[in-house]
Nucleic acid binder design. Structure first.
Lengths: 243, 243
DNA sequence: CCAAAAGTGTTCAGGATACACCCATGA
DNA sequence: TCATGGGTGTATCCTGAACACTTTTGG
């Protein structure tokens, strides 16, 4: 852990969460360098150590921030514009934080999905982090807004081809919650009957013996996602698509 | 162009081509450090300059190698294992080639598709490059075999969702050539009638007034891919998929 | 006229879409 | 008993899969 820092490479993570209605991204409050500056926010991340794999660096950052170990994480994209760190504030903040004066950092961004629950809320608030509505990004430093938009694209595409939606929902969820998630992120309306038909066909969605409580309408049934059943299913079906 | 080299970051490119029957990848002969060593091969690529965007670096490498400017290129994956350059030969080769002695290089790999034709064959042969059958990789240095496999996965997936196949075929091609390409890369058999039906429905495949010449069977008609018609089509159709 | 590969149509099953009402609960 | 959101079925269309013979050319 005491290996020197590599002054050229950083890791930044786009962590998405869903509060039931809106898509959120986790931002860190960037320490002000002087009192009168407005508060700026950045993605969680850090420079990497010379002995460290990038995936490991991303995992560690996430674990420190959320207290969680097994979080969905994948490489997103490399941002390498030689001028991506251009403002004086940015340079000063880097020098102040890492003790290096460089004007060229290549960042490898990661894409992560977590369930927003009480436990994670407690930990993230302690870490000067906050869940920002993806539609209302402002005061985001560096090129981190661009990175978040890249992450959003990835999320939209992944949601349609793999079951990552369940990373954003509680373990037990209703079909309506799942539909709301798809509608919110993809920005579309989905017919409820057709959605249920499609979803409930899948053998890896398990109906539980539990319902919503204390709601003043017909209580919804909870379901659970069975990843093993999903993987087994995948091994069989591989149908050809030609764009 | 005289900016210093960044000693931590390299770019490596997986360039795929199709010879009509087999999928090929472009490898560079790595200069031997002593006479009795066996010849080793590596991916085209280089360390990056401090003033250079990674995409630019990849483009330049490709242009030097193929003489071509507008080549299909996208980021593939970052390989960052701290021990990915472990053998003494690897380290010596790097020191000899770039004049830097480092034991940690992070490489950003790229994925590229080209049409193998006479012009490109001439240029690549001059550059100590050769087109290696993807099924018969051997004497590949560093972790470049792993990178190639990652590229192959990307190719399979891209071919099924976007029209990258046409990057690998000549401008004028027959439907059978297209089918052969899909069969070779995906490793499957495709029903010829269903394939034609599917493909020829697309308004962006344009039938030409030309046929094969001098073949001792019914000559096939040539087609061309119209990227503008494709893009126009895409703007309309965006249908929901749920994995 | 023969060999070799190109090109062609139909049937059937399963998936996607459109659409409107009844059900269970708490207040 | 009413307001609220959960849950259900059918008809139609479209797409994907299976399958065998005729056509055109050069030799």
């Amino acid at each position: 852990m005491q290996a020197p820092i590599n002054p050229s490479i950083s890791v930044d993570i786009v962590v998405f969460g869903f509060d039931g209605t809106r898509l959120k991204v986790l931002l860190i409050e960037r320490q002000k360098l002087n009192e009168k500056a407005t508060t700026e926010y950045k993605l969680p991340g850090s420079m990497i150590s010379e002995k460290e794999d990038l995936d490991t660096s991303a995992h560690n950052t996430l674990q420190n921030l959320t207290g969680l170990k097994n979080i969905y994480l994948e490489q997103l994209y490399v941002f390498s514009n030689p001028n991506r760190i251009s403002s004086d504030e940015d340079k000063q903040w880097i020098e102040h934080t890492y003790g290096i004066s460089t004007n060229r950092i290549v960042t490898v961004s990661y894409f992560s999905l977590v369930k927003i629950n009480l436990s994670i809320l407690k930990t993230t608030i302690q870490g000067m982090a906050f869940w920002c509505d993806v539609q209302e990004l402002k005061h985001v430093s560096f090129d981190h807004k661009e990175i978040i938009l890249k992450g959003l694209e990835r999320l939209k595409s992944r949601m349609q081809t793999t079951p990552v939606a369940f990373e954003l929902l509680p373990k037990k969820f209703t079909i309506k919650q799942l539909q709301n998630l798809y509608e919110a992120i993809l920005g579309i309306d989905i017919d409820n009957r057709n959605f249920r038909k499609k979803i409930l066909k899948y053998p890896y969605l398990i109906q539980l013996n539990e319902r919503e409580a204390k709601v003043s309408h017909k209580p919804a049934i909870f379901y659970q996602f069975d990843i093993h059943a999903y993987r087994q299913e995948q091994r069989k079906l591989k149908k050809l698509k030609i764009f």
